[in-house]
Every structure is written in structure tokens, then in C-alpha cells.
Design a protein around this nucleic acid. Sequence first.
DNA 1: TGAGCGAAGTTGTACAGCCAACTTTGGTGC
DNA 2: GCACCAAAGTTGGCTGTACAACTTCGCTCA
Lengths: 256, 256
Amino acid sequence: MQDGRAEPAKGTLYRKVAGDLRDAIAAGEYGSGGRLPAEATLAERYGVSRGTIRQALASLRADGLVTSRRGTRRVVLGTARMQSFAELVSFTNWARSLGEEPGGRVERVERRPADARECEQLRMEPGGEVVLVLRVRTLSGRPVMVERSLYPLWVGELVARIPPDAVSHTEPLQEQGVVFADADHTIDLTSADADDARLLGCEPGDALLRERRRSTDPSGAPLEWSEDRYLPGTVAFTVHNSIAASALTRRHRRAP
Amino acid sequence: MQDGRAEPAKGTLYRKVAGDLRDAIAAGEYGSGGRLPAEATLAERYGVSRGTIRQALASLRADGLVTSRRGTRRVVLGTARMQSFAELVSFTNWARSLGEEPGGRVERVERRPADARECEQLRMEPGGEVVLVLRVRTLSGRPVMVERSLYPLWVGELVARIPPDAVSHTEPLQEQGVVFADADHTIDLTSADADDARLLGCEPGDALLRERRRSTDPSGAPLEWSEDRYLPGTVAFTVHNSIAASALTRRHRRAP
DNA sequence: TGAGCGAAGTTGTACAGCCAACTTTGGTGC
DNA sequence: GCACCAAAGTTGGCTGTACAACTTCGCTCA
């Protein structure tokens, strides 16, 4: 996604249409705050059914590119927009999309029994073993993040076989057929411990931006429970939300 | 949403179905990691078409409640799940859903011309005026957040009429017909300035969790550009993401 | 016992049509 | 000029159908 250029957007019709509309919006074809053509118009233009157009537009809606309400044509919310969390699945992809050179070095690998909380998070039998990986991640050579990942054994064994200085872990895992499909993220603030301070070059107790992440594969099986700690100023998380269809809208007052 | 209880979920069929399924999942009816009934089964059970069922399930999917992939029934990802960002549209709602007593006090209201960046963010003509509101927000009496909000004039005038110690600003605005429909959020870390330190009771330079937010109404018109600064440990942001339908899935390896 | 294959089950994509709900616009009437 | 109303335009919601793509499971066969 982030390399931009005109990819045919895979085989399905609605994705082709969505990609096309995304490009048009990014090119400012409708302007910021401008109106998109009506669904029927687009359907005719692309030679597809209205349902397909609606599917494409739902995708733009989910990304916060356009509004959507009954009675009026869709309005462009912003002409440029980043993939944000879609890229957050991988530090490597995110870094590359910024034009930075990502790197990483595994500091410690440890195999040990999981405690009660870890078992629950990874949906394992009590007493099962997990693999803990401590890794420092760099942007153009400068350390910016410490990653502590907990894997179930079958993933951990694959991770352990990856060279310690590999840029990406998700890519080799993907080669092995391990797909990260879903993730829950929790973002807050924490302070650096001794490991963090040493690896990031800050003082113990300094504030760090923390992202905790639980990832599952397409079948819903937990793959990873991870805690990432970022140096301040190196990263910002972005997300879009919408009431989409909320109750109590009452009468709507327009901007003059 | 957050008061839980069985609301009929408005008039539409698919929302009734979605609400019902949400309740069932929350009650653990299918278990964590369990399989949902097939679409056809649900369609028959509820007496609606498969399309309607799919609409309901898409809503659960978007909330990260269930997986969704071709060939296999949907899998429950988690039995309990918070609304997270859906509640983030309002500090008041969020606090109440946590059982805390929200409060707030306006510290400063200022009407002044907008600079170039502010004009762009609020999509105004250059030289237009904006209203700046500085407010401290409390949880059960304890200050946890400083909010700096920038409003276009027509909203700012409504805000200025709200009593300084009003618990919620969005609720009276809603009464006036101002609906916050969409928002973009950026989350990172910053340090307290003199105002923050005084109002939050911390030291200048202390780290704070920062959320910048740009909200629009249903027609896409900017309503607010706000920067919130939270004391550490008072709030965590959660979000769910999914590849949903990514390319390069290759062959998928299952968890044993 | 294990590998391979095929059938059944399930979701994804696409089409077509219908009506309801809502917004906008323009004209009518005062 | 202004308020009100009617009509046109537009999206939301729902049904029904058909086929494609994929997963799972059990059976057959070596």
C-alpha cells in the first residue's frame, strides 16, 4: 500500500474501484470537502452494479476518507491520508513507508514456562512453555524502540531460527506461513527500566511511549503478545473513528 | 452503549441482530475461540436474508469481535471487549463507562484570528476568527487532563454560552444540533508546560500523554481541533486492526 | 499408518430490484 | 423578501439469486 503506485489492486471489482477512487481523491480530483459522484453515476461509469460501488465506498468510509449519510452525496474528508494502523502491523513496513532504514538486533531469547496471565493471553494450557524475545529496533541506525515479544512455542521456535540481526521478523514468519491477521493495541505511557535505558541510550525512569499488542492469525489463534517501548518523538499513533450510525442525531445544524 | 442493558438497538434489522450476537458473545455463549453459526443458519434463525446477517457480522468484524475468512465459520476473538474509541468521542461518556465521576472547568476562553495552519485545519478563509478554550478535566475530583480546543466561530459562540463548570460540552452542543460524526486522532508524548503543570499538579517538563483530535460533523465540516494532555497512568488508548483482506497470504500454517 | 483426493460446508463477490428515509433545491404563495 | 411545501436526487436497508474461492473433514488407497 505504502509504495503508492498504481497496483491493479487484486482481482476483485470493488477493490479496483476503491483503489481508483482512492487515487482520484488523493489527486485532489474532487477537492477537500467536495462531493463524490452519486452511487448510480459511479456504477454506470465503472460498468458494475450499485452494490459493488457501495462495497468500494464502504472501504473508503472505513478509512475515514469520505462521509456517508442518507440523502446527500458523499463528501471528501481529506485528500491525503496515511494508512496508519494498517502499517503498524509491522515496524519494518512502517519505517520503510517513512523513507527510513529499519533495523533490529535480538538481545535475548529465553524459553520458559508461562505464568497464568500469559497462558490466558496466548490461550494456552497452564504450564505450557513460551519463548520471550527482547529486541532493540533502529531507524537509520539510531535505536528508537525496545520490543519484548512473547510467542507460543511453535512460533517461538521459528523466531529463534531467524538471524539475530534480521531487519524484519514478520517477513520470514510470513514465508513460513505464519500470518498476522488481527491485533489489539493498547497505548499508554511508561518509564524506562535498566534494559530500556541501556538499549535506547536514555536514563532509567525516563518516560517512554508504550504499545502493547496481542496478535492472532486468521483462525483466531494467538500468535504474539508484545510490549513495545518507543523513545519520545520517534513515533505517533494515528487512528480514525466515526459514529457511522449513532442514535440520537436529532436535527442537524449545518455549518454556515 | 456503555450502560450495557438490553436496548432494542434502534429500528433496523441488522442492528438488532448485531446487538443480539454481541450479547451472546459477551455472555460467552460461543466461548473464546469458539465458532459462530453459519450465515445461513443465522439467517434462518432470525428470519432475515443472508445479506442482513452479513451486515450485522461486518459490524462485529469491525469491532474485532470475530474473525472472518472464506471457507470456515467465524471464530470468536474475545468474549469481553470495550468500545474503546467509540467512547473516546467524549471524555464524559468514557469516564462514566468506567464508573468514575467526570468533571471539568473552563480556565480560559479567547477569541482571536486564526493563523495559517489553524485555517487549514478548520477549513476556513484566511483571517477568519476562532475560539480557543482551555479546560481542565477531572475524574472524581482529581485533575487528569488539560484540553485545548479550537472552534470555528459559529461553534465557539455556542461553547462560550455553556457554564464554565459544565461536566460535558458535547452534550449541550448536541442539544443545539451540533453532531460530532468523525474524528482523526494522533497519539504521542509531550512534556508539560507551565499551564499544564499548574492545572494538573505536576512539574513543568514532566511527560504527558497527548491526543490531538480533529472532529467533523456529518457533512464533513470541521467542528473542532483539539489537543488533550493526560497525566500518566490515567488513560490508555485501545484500538483494533486487521488485515481484513490483505494480499500475499500464501499458504496458511495453523497453530497445532 | 499416512498421504492424497474429493465432497460438503462456508464465506466472498457480484448482480438486480424495491422501498424508505433523508437532504437539497426550486418554486409557490403570502 | 420570506416561509412553506412539493419534487427530485441520493443513500440506507433488505431480499433473493448465483457462482467462485477456500477450508475442513472423512474416505480411499497405497
